[in-house]
Design a protein around this nucleic acid. Structure first.
Lengths: 324, 324
DNA sequence: GGCAATGATGAACAAATGTGTAGATATATG
DNA sequence: CATATATCTACACATTTGTTCATCATTGCC
C-alpha cells in the first residue's frame, strides 16, 4: 500500500514532537482502543515503533494501570494487621505469583495510596528500594505548591541503575517539589568519618529537615545474598555473614535490626549515613511498604520499631505477620 | 499434579468468590504482567474465562488506565481557552480518531480530574449524559466522609440503560456518599404541573441542596437527531424542530439555549424539572465536560452562560472554541 | 417431569502483539 | 576523515490475545 513515493516513513506530524506522539499513541491504544496497526497508520510510523512506544509508556509511567478493587481476603488481612499491630491503615495486595512480582504489586498500591495523601506544602522523606522505585510508575504527576522531598539515605558509591538520590530526584520531578539529598556515601568508610560527615553543614541541614517530615515512605531490606544491598555489592559478603552473626534480620534505611527491631551492635551500624530509626519513629505519617517472604522477619522488626501509621504489603507476608 | 479426581476444572480458591478472582486476575495481568494462560492455570480456569474476566474489569472500571501526560498541543489549547474565556482550568484531551471516542476520552479526563478534587464533606451536583457516564470508569472508588451527591435533573419516564438517577446513584455508591434525586420526570407534562411539582416538599429540598453545591459536574447536549435526548425518544421529533425554530442550539440540564447562552422562549423550557442555569452559575466549582463538533455551538453558549471554573473537552472542539 | 429459552463454556480459528536479528543510520572518537 | 559505537528500523517469526460457534448446563414455564 506504500507506493513508490518514499521509502522512509513520513511523519504525519500532528504538530508535536517525539514525546507528543508517544502520548497520542498511548491515548489511542488505551483509551480509544485502536489497534497498534491503526495507530501506526495514523501517525505514519511502523507498527513495531508504536509497539515500542507503548512499552516505553508503560515502563516510564506515562501509562498507568490501577486496580480499583480489593479481594475479600486482602481486606480481612488488612483489618487483622491493623488490630494486631495498632496500624491505622494496612493495605494488602493479592499475593503475586512470581516472587519478582511482589515489588511491582506493592509499588502499585503504594503509588495509589500516595496519590490520595500527597498535598501542597508537604515535606516528604524517602527511603529507597525496588518497591519504592516501582511506585513511581503509579504516582500521578501533578504540580504541588511548596512540596519538599528529602532523601533519607546517603548516595551509592558504585554507580547503579537506581540510587537513592536519583529516586528522590525523580519523585520530586514528578510532583514539582524541591529536593534535598545527603551528599555522602550511604556507608561511610569508618565510624569516625561518619561522625565527621554528620557535622558537615550540608548534611546537618538535610538531617534537620528529616526530623521535621510530614510524611515518610520507607521499606526494609532482607539479609540474604539476593537482597538489593548485596546483589549490587554495596556491602561485601563478609559483612553479610557478620551481620547475621550479630543477630541482624534485615535493614531499615541501612540500619540493621534484630528480630525485635533493635539495631544490632555491629560496626556497620556506626558507619551508616541515613536518618535514624528514632527520627523515623517520630514522623507523624509514616508509610512502610515492603513484602515478600524473605522480608517477613525484618518487616516484623520494623513494625515493632517504627509503629508506622500505614503498612502496605502482600497477602503472603500479611498472613505471616498476622500469624506471628 | 492433576490426577483423575475431577474433570471439571476445580477452583483453586484463594478463599474468595467470583468477584475476588476477577480482581486477582486483573492484578496478575496488569500489575504483574503474567499472560492470560498463566493466570488461567493458576486460578484453575480456562484462558477464555480469564480473557472475559479481564474485559469485564476494563468495562466496569475495576481496571483503570490513565495517561499521565498531555501533548503539547493540548496544553497550549488549554491555555488559550483559559485566557479567552476566563476559565480557571481548561483540560483538553487529544483528538479521538473516531467520533464515538470523544465521550470516552473526555470521560477519562473528567474522571482523572475528579480524583484530584473530590474530598470529604463535599456536596456534588451531577448532570447527565454519555460523557459523565463514561467518567465513572475512571473515578477511583474511595470512602469519603460526609459526601453528598445531588442529581440535578429529574428522572426519565422511559426506562433507559442509563438514567440521571442511576448515574447519581452509581457515583454516590463509588464514593460512599449520600444521594439525592429529583423524584419527578425531567420534562413535566405542562408548565403548570412543573410549577406544582416545584412546590412539592421533596423536590424543594433537593433544589435547595442544589443551590448550595460545592462542586457541580455538567455537560451539554446538541440538537440533532443523533443526540441522546432524541435518540432515546425522550422528546418527540416535533419538539426538536420547534426548538430549532426558536433559535436553540442545544441544552444544558434540559434547558435549551440559543447561541449566546440565553434560554430560548419555548414551552419545553417551562416544563423542565432540573436545576436552573442561574443556580449552576453560582456554584463555586463548576465543571463543564463535553465535546464533539456537533456540540461546538452549545458549548460556546454554555460557557458564556455559566462561566465555568473548569472546562474539559477534546482537541477539535477546543480548536473551534479558540477560533470562535 | 419435560421443554424451550437463556446464558455460560471451551475448542478452533483469526487477529493482534511481542521478539530476535540483521542491516541502516546517526554519533562519537581516534 | 575513516572507523567504532550506539541507536534506530524493518522484517520474519513466535507468542499471546480475541472471536466465533457448536455444545452443554441452568432456569423458568407449562
Amino acid at each position: 500500500m506504500d507506493g513508490a513515493e518514499s521509502r522512509r516513513p513520513r511523519r504525519r506530524d500532528h504538530g508535536g514532537g517525539e514525546a507528543d506522539q508517544r502520548v497520542r499513541a498511548a491515548w489511542m491504544y488505551y483509551i480509544e482502543g485502536l489497534t497498534q496497526e491503526e495507530i501506526a497508520e495514523r501517525l505514519g510510523l511502523s507498527r513495531v515503533r508504536v509497539l515500542r512506544m507503548l512499552a516505553e509508556c508503560r515502563e516510564d509511567g506515562t501509562v498507568q494501570f490501577r486496580i480499583n478493587a480489593r479481594t475479600a481476603n486482602c481486606i480481612a488481612l488488612g483489618q487483622t494487621l491493623e488490630a494486631r499491630y495498632g496500624i491505622a491503615h494496612a493495605i494488602v495486595v493479592p499475593a503475586p505469583v512470581a516472587e519478582a512480582g511482589v515489588t511491582e504489586a506493592i509499588g502499585a498500591a503504594l503509588g495509589d495510596y500516595l496519590n490520595t495523601v500527597l498535598c501542597d506544602g508537604m515535606t516528604v522523606g524517602l527511603g529507597w528500594g525496588q518497591t519504592l522505585r516501582a511506585s513511581l510508575k503509579h504516582v500521578v504527576s501533578r504540580k504541588f505548591d511548596g512540596m519538599t522531598v528529602v532523601s533519607l539515605l546517603g548516595a551509592l558509591t558504585r554507580a547503579s541503575a537506581f540510587s537513592p538520590s536519583e529516586f528522590a530526584w525523580r519523585f520530586a520531578d514528578l510532583l514539582d517539589a524541591d529536593c534535598y539529598f545527603l551528599a555522602a556515601p550511604v556507608i561511610a568508610p569508618d565510624p569516625m568519618t561518619r561522625d565527621l560527615l554528620f557535622r558537615h553543614a550540608g548534611i546537618e541541614e538535610v538531617m534537620a529537615r528529616a526530623a521535621r517530615l510530614d510524611l515518610a515512605i520507607v521499606s526494609v531490606g532482607d539479609l540474604t545474598p539476593e537482597s538489593t544491598l548485596f546483589r549490587y555489592a554495596m556491602l561485601p559478603e563478609v559483612d553479610l555473614q557478620s551481620l547475621i552473626a550479630a543477630g541482624a534480620v534485615g535493614d531499615l534505611l541501612c540500619n540493621f535490626l534484630d528480630e525485635n527491631g533493635v539495631p544490632v551492635d555491629h560496626e556497620i551500624n556506626r558507619r551508616v549515613i541515613a536518618a535514624s530509626p528514632e527520627t523515623m519513629r517520630r514522623v507523624p505519617h509514616l508509610v512502610l511498604a515492603s513484602g515478600g517472604w524473605r522480608k517477613l522477619k525484618v518487616m516484623y522488626a520494623a513494625i515493632r520499631l517504627l509503629a508506622p501509621r500505614v503498612l502496605i504489603t502482600d497477602e503472603a507476608t500479611a498472613e505471616g505477620l498476622a500469624a506471628l
